[in-house]
Computed example of a mutant assay.
Amino acid sequence: MAKRLGSTTYSRNLKRFSSHARYFIKKLGCEQNEQLNFILVHDDKNKNTKYSSTSKHPAMTLHKPLSLLESHTPQFTLFTKRNKRIHVLSQNKKGYAVFMEINYRESKTSDFKKIRAQFIDVDLNKISVHLDTKEQVKQMIETIQSDPAEQLQSITVKKNKKGQYHLLALRKKQRVAKLKNAFIKKFKTHIKDTMIVETKNGYHIYWVIQGGSVSKFVPIQKALAKKFSSDPMITNLSRVMRIPGFYHMKNPRSPFMVRVKQLGRKKPFSQAEIIQSLALKPFN
Score class of each variant (00 low, 15 high):
residue 106 E to G: 09
residue 194 T to S: 11
residue 283 F to Q: 05
residue 44 D to W: 09
residue 96 Y to T: 02
residue 249 M to L: 10
residue 267 K to Q: 12
residue 218 V to P: 10
residue 176 V to M: 04
residue 211 G to H: 01
residue 205 I to E: 04
residue 127 I to M: 13
residue 21 A to I: 04
residue 153 Q to N: 14
residue 90 S to W: 11
residue 82 R to M: 08
residue 24 F to M: 00
residue 8 T to S: 12
residue 109 T to N: 14
residue 170 L to E: 10
residue 265 R to W: 07
residue 256 F to T: 06
residue 51 Y to W: 08
residue 180 K to W: 07
residue 263 L to V: 09
residue 112 F to I: 01
residue 118 Q to L: 08
residue 220 I to G: 02
residue 135 E to A: 15
residue 131 L to R: 13
residue 26 K to S: 14
residue 6 G to F: 11
residue 218 V to T: 13
residue 132 D to Y: 07
residue 15 K to D: 15
residue 78 L to K: 04
residue 72 H to C: 10
residue 126 K to C: 11
residue 114 K to P: 01
residue 6 G to I: 07
residue 138 K to Y: 10
residue 36 L to K: 04
residue 56 K to L: 05
residue 5 L to F: 02
residue 73 T to G: 03
residue 218 V to F: 03
residue 14 L to F: 01
residue 65 P to R: 09
residue 175 R to S: 06
residue 234 I to Q: 03
residue 170 L to N: 12
residue 101 E to F: 03
residue 34 E to P: 02
residue 162 K to R: 05
residue 66 L to V: 04
residue 281 K to H: 10
residue 72 H to A: 12
residue 147 D to V: 04
residue 134 K to V: 10
residue 97 A to E: 01
residue 199 T to C: 08
residue 71 S to T: 12
residue 2 A to P: 06
residue 85 R to N: 15
residue 207 W to F: 14
residue 204 H to K: 06
residue 101 E to S: 01
residue 97 A to S: 06
residue 193 D to V: 00
residue 243 I to D: 00
residue 284 N to W: 13
residue 273 E to P: 01
residue 32 Q to D: 14
residue 194 T to D: 07
residue 233 M to F: 06
residue 53 S to L: 09
residue 93 K to R: 14
residue 262 Q to S: 15
residue 254 S to A: 11
residue 150 E to V: 06
residue 47 K to E: 07
residue 212 G to R: 00
residue 55 S to Q: 11
residue 67 S to L: 15
residue 96 Y to S: 07
residue 154 S to A: 13
residue 264 G to H: 06
residue 1 M to V: 11
residue 97 A to Q: 04
residue 139 Q to D: 00
residue 281 K to G: 05
residue 274 I to S: 07
residue 274 I to C: 02
residue 36 L to E: 03
residue 280 L to P: 03
residue 264 G to S: 02
residue 22 R to M: 09
residue 24 F to T: 05
residue 44 D to C: 04
residue 47 K to D: 10
residue 2 A to L: 10
residue 115 I to Q: 02
residue 191 I to M: 08
residue 249 M to G: 02
residue 104 Y to V: 04
residue 282 P to Y: 09
residue 211 G to V: 00
residue 123 D to W: 07
residue 61 T to A: 06
residue 278 L to G: 09
residue 184 I to S: 05
residue 10 Y to M: 09
residue 118 Q to M: 04
residue 197 V to E: 04
residue 56 K to R: 07
residue 80 T to H: 13
residue 239 R to W: 04
residue 261 K to G: 09
residue 46 N to I: 05
residue 190 H to A: 14
residue 265 R to N: 08
residue 26 K to D: 14
residue 25 I to N: 03
residue 133 T to I: 09
residue 92 N to T: 03
residue 13 N to P: 07
